[in-house]
Structure formats: structure tokens, C-alpha cells
Design a protein around this nucleic acid. Structure first.
Lengths: 242, 242
DNA sequence: GAGTGGTCTAGACCACATT
DNA sequence: ATGTGGTCTAGACCACTCA
């Protein structure tokens, strides 16, 4: 059963890979339940405990959500608990109100040096650029400039964005089948330029957080690159270190 | 065995608590191996699998480190793999050299409003304040101002800091028995003041990251509060989002 | 070879949600 | 009552480390 020493991979990891492949292939849709552990055990010809351990790891990566007594579900950005899952910005006074996204612009362009590198696409490939404002308690706090590979999101338009009630990622998941799994942020401090200062209603030159994010789908494929400028007058970026 | 509905706690969690208590009581020192799973199972009167699950969770919190074939060890900040475990700053060019800590100042004071709140100690209680520089490739990148409760770190002096070769946390662990377990950082953007700009060799007013960290030991007890000012000219703060 | 953590199994039973 | 995930056990065997 098990392989010889150099490339040993336990059974439950092989099962994990099989389940991930099924997820990636879209065999089960976001928000839906996957088969029970017993069924999967039968399908893969292993014991329930082995399937369990595979699912445990996948759930640990937030790709599946276990619900005792009900089943195991494919994680979705439509889930209210996953809303703004990647946003780490918090009001200084513990006001827990959800932010509101206000689209500003949306246009098409060709990928330049930076965009092509970040999104791992050809130089000059079509991309979509969109700008938006994030408001907390109706006050502007973040300006985002978001770059998406044009190929994946053909029908995306300014109107689509305005009509959508929910997060951007839930839109990209529901309408375009792209599921954002993990992201990496690079944070620096910069001075507000003219247009940013106007959008955020701060003085020109005010120090802002520059948060560059690359977001990945299955197979560590980058599908979004964005830069956000955060006003930290009344908010901070909260990070837990373990 | 198991309790009735409202306060149900599985056996392995109770075992987890017992192991955590032993850790907190210092029954096993950092860097040393804890008893084998079999021994612990015998000691607590449960099966090895139950102990295993308890240890799994504790290891997931980075309090224990498993080493196949050898044993399970108490995590230590002396471990080279844990060095600068909480530091998220990375050079823009992938230079992986370790930073070097240069102590600047160290004095005693009484806790003010902010320090007493952050460290959960009495207003006016003795604290130790220390300032230091973090250098990457011999260039100053971070100025830290660090607040410690005086009661816990009696003998700490500027000389101690200078003589110590290792991280601050390994010093606090080895000499004072305080083990830093987790931390929380609040990040904002600020303008460099006069003295900071001189220390970091940047222009006055340059945008910097202000990183405020509270660090906790066992029982979520805060034992360190610090503010770091990060120059992000050639470095960025890297954060993985899952 | 002995000891440790790591994997895998099979079965019993518990907690939870739904019918 | 049924089905789901969650816990617990006991035993067998594998992979790794070290003497």
C-alpha cells in the first residue's frame, strides 16, 4: 500500500488530493453539502477515519465547513460568516458595523509589467481595472484599485457591480465561478496623493497604509491583484500572531 | 463519563487543559521533551489516541513541537526556527538575512494610563521601558519602544541586553521564565517625528508603519506592550490571509 | 533493536439537526 | 427514528531517530 521511503505520502493525504480535485472540478457547488464521510469512504475504498482526517485538513484551510448533525459544506463567500473574510481593518472604537462598498470606476486595459507579473498572465493580456471606496459608518476609509484577468471575468461591468448586493468575492464566485481561497498582503506606509486625499477626505500627504493583495484560487493560481490605501485616522489594521 | 448537554467538553479537551496546566506550572522546561504519548495516556487514564488529539491541538497553537521518532518538545524562543517568530517585516529584494537588534536605552518608570491598560497592571506600577533599533544588512529599519511590567523582570538592565546574543523573547524566557505565546498587532500609518527620522535615517515626515504589539503568556496574560516604527522604503510587512 | 510519533482500521457510542 | 459529524477505544503496522 504505502510507498517506499523517499516520496512517502500517507493515505489520507492522497484522499485529500482527490477531494480537492473534486472541489476544483466543481463536482459540488459552494454552499452545498458534500457526500457524507461514510459515502466518501466507500467511494475511495478507505475507512471513515481516513476520510475524516483528509476533510479535517481541508476544513482547516477554510475550503470546507463542518456542521455537526448536518454535513460538510463547500465554503462560500456568500456565507455571511465569510463576508469580508480577508479584511483586517477595524474601527478604533469597537463599532462592529460592516463596511459598505461603493464602486467608482470600471474599465478594461492591457496588462503592464506589474499586473502581468502579479497575475501571472501575458504582458498585454486583457485585464479589468476597477476602483471603489470602502465606507465604514458612511465615512470613506479605503480606496481600492483592483486588477482582474479579463479572460476570467468577461461580462463584468460597472452596472454589474452596482447591482450586486454583497462582497466582491461573492460576486466573482457566484457569477464567474472563481473562488478566492487565500491571499497575501504586503503592507507599506505611503503619503496620500492628490486624488486619494480627496476620495478619503484627508489632507494631501497624510500617511496611509498601502495594502497590496494578491488573491489565489485553487492550485495557487493568482486571480486578483489589488492595492488599497487605508486611512488609519479612526481605524487600524489588526493582525493576530500565533 | 461525558457530562450532560449544556457544558459538554470532550475528554481530549480536558486532557488538553491538564497538559496546559502542567506546561504553565513549568513541569517541563522549554526545549525539553515531554513524556511520550503512552506515558501520558497511562498517567491520565485514557487511550493514546485521546492524548494524541490533545497534543495535536496544543502543537497547533505552537506551544509544543512534535518530532517524529524523537518525542514532543516544549516550544522555545531559543529554537532557531522560532527566532523572530512574530516579525513580519521582509526586505523587498528577497534578502533573507536575519535582522540584528541594537539596544539604545533602558530605564524604569511608573505605568501611565496607556501602559497600565495594555499590560493590565495598576496605574503607577513599576515598568521597564527599553528602546532599540532593528537593523537589516546593517541598516536601521525599525525603532522599537518596549514596555514590560517591572515586577516580572527585576534584574533586567541595559548591560543584560547588550550581553545577550539572541532574541529579546529568548532572553525573557531563559532568564525570567516568561514564555511569549501569542501576540496581537495594531497597524497604522504615521509620519516620522524628529528623533525617529534621525534613528532610521529618513526625512522628517516620512510615512512609517506604526506597529503596536501586545504579547501574551499563558492564560492570555499580557506581558509586553511595544510600539515599533517601521521604515518601508526597502521592506514591507507581509501577512498571509487564510 | 528499541522507542517515539504517524497512520490506518473497525467498531461503539455521543451530540446535534431534521423528519 | 434516522442520518450526520464528533469522540473514544484498542490494536496493528509504518517511518524516523538513535544507540
Amino acid at each position: 500500500m504505502a510507498q517506499e521511503s523517499p516520496t512517502f505520502s500517507p493515505l489520507y493525504r492522497q484522499i485529500k488530493t482527490l477531494i480537492l480535485q473534486a472541489l476544483e472540478a466543481g463536482e459540488w457547488r459552494p454552499g452545498q453539502a458534500i457526500p457524507s464521510e461514510q459515502e466518501l469512504a466507500a467511494r475511495f475504498g478507505v475507512s471513515q477515519g481516513t476520510v475524516r482526517k483528509a476533510i479535517d485538513e481541508i476544513a482547516g484551510d477554510n475550503l470546507l465547513v463542518r456542521k455537526q448533525g448536518k454535513g460538510t459544506y463547500v465554503a462560500s463567500h456568500n456565507d455571511p460568516r465569510a463576508l469580508f473574510r480577508f479584511l483586517r481593518l477595524v474601527p478604533i472604537d469597537g463599532d462592529l458595523s460592516h463596511p459598505k462598498s461603493v464602486p467608482l470606476d470600471c474599465w478594461r486595459a492591457k496588462a503592464g509589467q506589474e499586473a502581468s507579473r502579479m497575475l501571472a498572465i501575458e504582458l498585454g493580456a486583457p485585464i479589468i481595472i476597477l476602483r471603489r471606496l470602502l465606507k465604514f459608518a458612511n465615512k470613506p476609509v479605503v480606496v481600492d484599485e483592483i486588477y482582474l484577468p479579463g479572460e476570467l471575468f468577461q461580462g463584468l461591468s460597472f452596472e454589474t457591480l452596482q447591482d450586486w448586493h454583497g462582497s466582491l468575492y461573492s460576486l466573482l464566485e457566484s457569477r464567474f465561478g472563481s473562488r478566492m481561497i487565500r491571499a497575501q498582503e504586503r503592507i507599506r506606509a505611503v503619503a496620500a496623493d492628490r486624488s486619494t486625499s480627496e476620495a478619503l477626505k484627508v489632507a494631501e500627504g497624510t500617511p496611509l497604509l498601502s495594502v497590496e493583495r494578491v488573491t489565489y484560487t485553487y492550485g495557487d493560481k493568482p486571480v486578483e491583484w489589488r492595492r488599497g490605501l487605508y486611512s488609519t485616522a479612526e481605524h487600524y489594521y489588526l493582525n493576530e500572531l500565533n
